[in-house]
C-alpha cells in the first residue's frame, strides 16, 4: 500500500538488506566456531596418529596439536608399533567379521519378518506386531547379565558367535521393515504372483529391490551400533583372538608403556571406516536417524 512512496522506502530497504548481511555473517562465524568444536578432537587424533609419541604429549597444549610437522612426522610407524603391541589388525578383522555377520544376516532375517508381518495373513500376526513394538523398549543392558549366564553355561565365551547371535534379530529394524513394507503398493506383488512367481521369488525379485532405502538404513544403523559395542564384549571376551576394536583400544590405553602416538593411530584406524561410509552414504544416515526418531 505504501509502494508509491519510493524515496523513504529505498534507504529502509537498504538498511534491512545490510542488517540481513550482518546477520548472515554472524551466523557463518558462529557455525565456523561450532564446526571447530566438533572437529578439533578428530583433527587432533589424525595429526597425532602420525606423530612421534613424545611430540604428541608436548604438542598437546598448543595449536601445534593440530599441525603436522616434518620433524616429528613418523609416517605409519605408530600404527606398526600399535599393531605389534596390541594386534590391531587382528582386532580390526574381529570387528569386521562380527559387524559383517550382524548386519548381513540381520538384513535378511529382519526384512523377511517385517515383510511377513506387513503382508502375509497368518494367525498370531497382530500379537506378534504388538510384541515387537514392546520389545523395542528393552535395552540390551537389561539382558546382559542373564545372557552372560546363558552363554557361559553353553561354553560360548570368547567366541565370535557370542558377539554375533544376540544382535542379528533386532525389534527396531523389524519394525522399520514392517512400516516400510506397509507403504509399498501391493499391485506389484500381485502382478508378480499372477505371472506365477512364488512368495520367495516375489520377495527376492520384486519386493526386496523396492525396499533398498529400508535396507540401506538398517545396514548403516546396524553397522554404527555393532562397530561401537563395548559393554557386551567387555563381559564375554578375554584374549585378543576374538576381541573387537572398542575393547582393544580400552585395553591398549592402559597397557604400559602408554604411547599416545600409537593409541591415536589405533583410534584413527577404528574411526576411519565409519567416517568413510558416513561421508559416502550421508543421506541414508540422516534419513535413517530422522525416521527412527519420528517413530519413537
Amino acid at each position: 500500500m505504501t509502494a508509491i512512496q519510493t524515496s523513504p522506502t529505498q534507504p529502509k530497504l537498504e538498511s534491512m538488506e545490510r542488517r540481513r548481511r550482518i546477520n548472515l555473517i554472524v551466523q557463518y562465524i558462529l557455525m565456523v566456531l561450532l564446526a571447530a568444536f566438533f572437529l578439533f578432537p578428530l583433527v587432533f587424533m589424525f595429526v597425532a596418529a602420525f606423530k612421534q609419541d613424545a611430540s604428541v604429549l608436548s604438542d598437546s597444549d598448543s595449536i601445534k596439536a593440530f599441525i603436522p610437522d616434518a620433524d616429528s612426522f613418523v609416517g605409519l610407524e605408530n600404527i606398526r608399533s600399535a599393531s605389534s603391541r596390541a594386534s590391531v589388525w587382528r582386532v580390526f578383522l574381529n570387528s569386521t567379521i562380527i559387524s559383517g555377520f550382524i548386519v548381513g544376516l540381520g538384513l535378511i532375517v529382519n526384512s523377511l519378518f517385517g515383510y511377513a508381518l506387513a503382508r502375509l495373513r497368518f494367525r498370531g500376526r497382530f500379537a506378534l506386531i504388538a510384541t515387537i513394538v514392546a520389545l523395542i523398549i528393552i535395552p540390551f543392558e537389561a539382558l546382559a547379565v542373564p545372557l552372560l549366564f546363558i552363554t557361559a553355561e553353553l561354553g560360548w565365551l570368547d567366541t565370535y558367535h557370542v558377539q554375533i547371535l544376540p544382535f542379528i534379530a533386532n525389534p527396531l529394524f523389524i519394525y522399520l521393515f514392517y512400516t516400510f513394507f506397509l507403504n509399498v503398493p501391493v499391485s506389484l506383488e500381485e502382478a508378480a504372483r499372477v505371472d506365477g512367481a512364488g512368495p520367495v521369488r516375489t520377495f527376492v525379485s520384486v519386493v526386496a529391490p523396492l525396499a533398498k532405502p529400508a535396507y540401506a538404513t538398517m545396514a548403516i544403523l546396524g553397522f554404527l551400533f555393532s562397530w561401537g559395542q563395548y559393554l557386551w564384549p567387555v563381559m564375554v571376551t578375554r584374549g585378543v583372538n576374538v576381541r573387537p576394536l572398542p575393547v582393544g583400544i580400552g585395553v591398549f590405553k592402559t597397557t604400559p608403556p602408554v604411547q599416545w602416538g600409537d593409541i591415536m593411530a589405533f583410534a584413527a584406524l577404528m574411526t576411519l571406516p565409519l567416517l568413510i561410509i558416513f561421508l559416502i552414504f550421508q543421506r541414508y544416515f540422516i534419513q535413517g536417524i530422522a525416521s527412527s526418531g519420528v517413530k519413537g
Partner: peptide, 20 residues
C-alpha cells in the same frame, strides 16, 4: 560436520578426550 562425532565410536572418542 556437526554430525561427524556421532559416527565416531564412543570408545575412541573417550580415548581422544582423555588426552585432551
Amino acid at each position: 560436520v556437526f554430525f561427524l562425532p556421532v559416527v565416531t565410536v564412543m570408545a575412541a572418542a573417550a580415548v581422544i578426550w582423555s588426552l585432551l
